[in-house]
Design a protein around this nucleic acid. Structure first.
Lengths: 154, 154
DNA sequence: AGAATCCCCACTGAAACAATCAAGTTTAAG
DNA sequence: CTTAAACTTGATTGTTTCAGTGGGGATTCT
């Protein structure tokens, strides 16, 4: 599994949306783009893609913007990454959803394949069990730690 | 971590070399290439690369060929894959050996990064603990099972 | 010498990646 | 009812990576 810049931007944007999640408040692309150093035009494309995945919804027009389509605890990182970057498996011949035949003489007898399956399992286990809500919690915690250090300094 | 075709070919070739490992017998590129459906010219390049990594050695000339530079139980998959395909981490900002700064506002406060570190740990734990010898064992086992099925059929 | 093998380095064609551009449509406010 | 600020859609571009090829050179046995 390789997380591309595209996938990373998607996660970063979703964290921002997750942190300010509420019934019907929306965030503008520009706001997210500025806060996260993401090229606006590129982010536009990415959020649109997340929309087609049913992860976010949008409102158009001058008061428009994006918000999560569902509460953060219902979105797993696995879902997001699979949609943006494809397979979680290190090679497609061990992928469940993005399977492709490989060139080895016989997949059933392939030792490499069995190791790669283990790797895939390990990755999937982590990413399917971390939700956007948990990711946001981590962020709050990390930023909280920093804030406390500052408090002491003052 | 993404295993490229290049890395996969390397592992496949090493399994062949591992299975017939002995003090000074060598295998020709052509033999490996034919057995494994790997383009000869490409394999040439790959084995040369593995040589510079100290994984294999070669003998030139008409009786030439390749063999493992060290016994199979001393070579981990992590070593091979890192040399062929680079970082095991899903993003380079969490890689130990291939670290590169990422574009997020503050790495220390990045929640995504902390999840990706977990993924990296999981992958490394597997690949650093599987040696070429163990991989060869798996292959023998898998092929053995097939052989038995055939025996019954006869 | 000659044939078979490894060695080295450059090159190419295709695909993936990271953007960017252009020309819409929708919406609220003035 | 016009306009500006937002999202929408689809194409395009420049760069890098990937997989594979090609040509010529060095080495070693016979």
């Amino acid at each position: 599994m390789k997380l591309t810049v595209r996938g990373e931007y998607a996660l970063r944007a979703l964290v921002v949306l997750g942190l300010s999640y509420s019934a019907d408040a929306v965030l503008r692309i520009q706001a997210i783009s500025e806060q996260q150093n993401i090229p606006k035009r590129f982010l536009e494309q990415i959020l649109n893609d997340l929309k087609s995945a049913g992860v976010v919804t949008s409102r158009r027009g001058v008061t428009g913007g994006y918000r999560l389509a569902r509460p953060p605890h219902e979105v797993t990182l696995a879902t997001v990454i699979r949609h943006m970057d494809g397979a979680l498996a290190p090679v497609s011949c061990v992928s469940e959803r993005f399977y492709e035949k490989c060139s080895c003489p016989d997949e059933a007898k392939c030792g490499i394949r069995s190791v790669m399956k283990e790797v895939r399992e390990a990755v999937v286990k982590i990413l399917e069990n971390v939700t956007l809500a948990q990711l946001c919690e981590r962020v709050k915690l990390l930023q909280g730690v920093q804030a406390n250090i500052l408090d002491y300094a003052i």
